[in-house]
């Protein structure tokens, strides 16, 4: 029913080059990401963000870069905790079959 027709590898020599086969393009993409992050951080000094909470409830949110730092730290924490969970929870692929 399913259509499995992957003809794998062995043709990379003839194959046309794709955009990310060139490491330069990958670097370029990462550089674009860095610049966007930098611009967004700077925007905190230019645009006056309204606070999401009333004065005093979450005073740190007024600090420039609070949400940027929050997003970054959240993801790093997420992955580091995930790595620890992997040790605890990971099993062989056929774990439930035996």
């Amino acid at each position: 029913m399913e259509n499995h027709s992957p003809d794998e590898g062995n043709q990379s020599s003839k194959e046309e080059k794709h955009i990310f086969d060139n490491p330069k393009n990958v670097k370029r993409l990462i550089r674009i990401l860095f610049s966007i992050c930098f611009v967004l951080f700077i925007m905190d000094f230019i645009i006056h963000r309204h606070l999401s909470f009333e004065e005093g409830e979450l005073s740190v949110e007024a600090w420039p870069g609070f949400y940027a730092v929050y997003g970054f730290v959240a993801c790093v924490v997420l992955v580091l905790v995930g790595k620890q969970m992997q040790k605890l929870l990971m099993r062989r692929e056929d774990y439930y079959e035996h």
């Binding site: 990401l33 860095f34 966007i36 992050c37 967004l40 951080f41 905190d44 963000r49 999401s52 870069g65 949400y67 940027a68 730092v69 929050y70 997003g71 970054f72 730290v73 959240a74 993801c75 790093v76 992955v79």
Partner: peptide, 12 residues
């Protein structure tokens, strides 16, 4: 706010 959270997650 949303763009900052998202792009810095991507950065992470």
């Amino acid at each position: 706010l949303q763009l900052q959270v998202l792009f810095f997650s991507a950065l992470a």
